[in-house]
Amino acid sequence: MEVRTIKVFTTVDNINLHTQVVDMSMTYGQQFGPTYLDGADVTKIKPHNSHEGKTFYVLPNDDTLRVEAFEYYHTTDPSFLGRYMSALNHTKKWKYPQVNGLTSIKWADNNCYLATALLTLQQIELKFNPPALQDAYYRARAGEAANFCALILAYCNKTVGELGDVRETMSYLFQHANLDSCKRVLNVVCKTCGQQQTTLKGVEAVMYMGTLSYEQFKKGVQIPCTCGKQATKYLVQQESPFVMMSAPPAQYELKHGTFTCASEYTGNYQCGHYKHITSKETLYCIDGALLTKSSEYKGPITDVFYKENSYTTTIK
């Protein structure tokens, strides 16, 4: 009895394709271990004539594949690729409408935090270190965002349907971005203890939790000093293409032309909904596939993004 075979390709990165001759009487799992086709788990399936010449994702289970996976995804987590594939199996079914010149995501599976993050990423200057993220990001900007969303979920250790947080998501993504040249110098002034300067680099240099107003941050924000008295913390120097200011959701007025974009969060910790506000020729609110415009805006804002380049204080 002759062994019926077909020729397929296996890959971990969709760049390096490895030619395989597979036995049609055995499952993919018996031949390769966990195997995925377009995100779908085909591990328990036997090869079919229609699979001839198709590319299958496999887990990096030998040295060659491990090197290829690390170079593309910059992670050695053995569960990463499987999590990416199972997320992709959902995100490829989502709709990605162009809204006001940006790629958004039609609401499904509690994905409003991903839509808000995706919209924000198209408006701030950011370059990702893992080629996987950078490639998928370019495709997302062009309207094909399924891979990018699935990668975000995998890097953030999230599953489809789980509630997510924009600030946490951005923080994970910033860790995989090139923020080497970003720098922030802060000064804390206390009447009792004097003053202390701190220099922050990388992710810490672009994120701040405690106030939404970048102007206020430049002037000074009140913080408790270690001595128990009130101290003032203010920005001395900022070198970065953008800054992200966050605070627990509270009524906040966004003035046209003073910011790049913002995240609105309605609801409580267990259950809520994100919308995205962007400042173009007027203010726009993007909620999944829905767009509304207004000249002014007041609502429960939790993150505001500002364009920056270089700032030095005039406070002496």
Rank of each mutant, 00 (worst) to 15 (best):
Q175E: 10
Q251Y: 11
C182A: 09
N268E: 11
H90P: 04
K298A: 11
N100I: 07
L126N: 04
K44L: 10
E168Y: 07
A115P: 02
G164Q: 02
V67D: 10
M85W: 13
T232G: 02
R141S: 11
M209T: 11
A250G: 10
S25R: 12
K255H: 11
T312S: 10
K219E: 15
G210Y: 02
L200Y: 15
K233D: 00
F70G: 08
Y57M: 11
N14G: 13
D180W: 08
N49I: 15
V67P: 09
G161F: 03
D165W: 00
G257N: 13
G194I: 04
L88E: 03
P78L: 12
Y297E: 00
I223N: 07
Y84D: 04
G161I: 03
G210H: 02
Q122R: 02
Y306Q: 04
Q230G: 09
L17V: 10
P60Q: 08
V42I: 13
K229Q: 14
G194H: 04
C156N: 06
T302H: 01
Q222L: 10
P248I: 11
A87W: 04
V58C: 10
Y96K: 03
T282F: 10
L235D: 01
Q20D: 14
N49C: 14
Y155W: 02
Y113P: 04
E215P: 06
M26C: 15
T11F: 05
S294R: 13
K219S: 11
L59Q: 15
L59N: 15
L151M: 09
Y28L: 12
Y36P: 03
L37W: 12
Q20P: 07
G257W: 02
F9D: 14
H74A: 07
Q122S: 03
A117V: 11
F305N: 00
G272P: 03
E296P: 10
P300A: 10
N178I: 05
M245D: 00
F32H: 15
K255W: 06
V12D: 07
N61K: 13
K95I: 13
Q251K: 11
Q238P: 01
W94P: 04
H273V: 00
G267F: 05
T199C: 14
M207V: 08
L37I: 14
L254T: 00
A205H: 00
F242E: 02
K293A: 13
I277A: 02
K219V: 12
L290A: 14
R184K: 03
S79L: 12
L163Y: 12
G101C: 06
G33R: 05
K127E: 13
N147C: 11
M85V: 07
T266K: 11
N157L: 03
D287P: 02
K229P: 01
N178S: 12
V185S: 05
L114T: 03
G228H: 03
K46V: 10
A289M: 13
Y138P: 06
L17K: 13
Q30A: 14
T27R: 14
V185I: 10
V243C: 06
P34N: 11
H256Y: 13
K95V: 11
C285V: 11
K93H: 12
E52I: 14
Y297G: 00
Y284F: 11
E125C: 07
V221T: 07
D135V: 10
N49S: 14
F128R: 03
R141H: 09
D13M: 05
R66C: 12
T55M: 14
T278Q: 14
T198V: 13
Y28V: 05
Y306S: 00
Y297M: 04
K127N: 14
A205C: 05
A145Q: 04
L126R: 03
I277L: 06
C112H: 04
Q123M: 03
W94F: 03
A69E: 12
N16Y: 09
V206Q: 01
L59M: 13
L133N: 03
P131H: 03
P34V: 08
F56L: 10
S86G: 09
S310I: 07
I286M: 03
K298L: 11
R167M: 04
V189W: 10
S279L: 00
E264C: 06
K255I: 13
H256N: 08
V21A: 09
Y234H: 08
K183C: 09
P34K: 11
Y172Q: 08
V188L: 11
T91K: 04
T292D: 08
V189Q: 09
T11P: 05
L163T: 12
I124C: 05
T64M: 13
K218D: 01
D13F: 05
Q122L: 05
Q175G: 12
V12C: 12
Q197E: 11
P97W: 08
L65C: 09
L59T: 15
E71T: 15
G257T: 05
Q30H: 15
L212Q: 05
G53E: 14
I6T: 14
F242G: 00
T192R: 14
P47Y: 05
N16Q: 07
T64G: 14
A231W: 00
G257F: 01
M244K: 03
S263E: 01
K233C: 12
L126G: 03
L200R: 08
A205V: 01
Q197R: 14
Y252M: 09
E125R: 07
T232W: 11
G220Q: 03
Q197D: 07
V236F: 07
T75L: 06
T226D: 08
N147S: 14
Y28D: 05
V22S: 10
G299W: 00
G161M: 05
I152Q: 03
R184M: 03
Q134A: 14
H18L: 07
H74K: 08
S104V: 04
A115W: 03
A117M: 08
T278E: 03
M209D: 07
T43W: 06
P300Q: 14
E204L: 07
L153H: 03
L65F: 13
Q222K: 15
K183W: 05
Q98M: 15
L88Y: 15
V189R: 14
F70I: 09
G267Y: 05
N14F: 09
N187T: 10
E71A: 08
Q222Y: 09
T55G: 07
Y252W: 11
G164D: 03
F174V: 04
T5C: 13
I277Q: 03
C190H: 02
L119I: 03
D23A: 11
N49E: 15
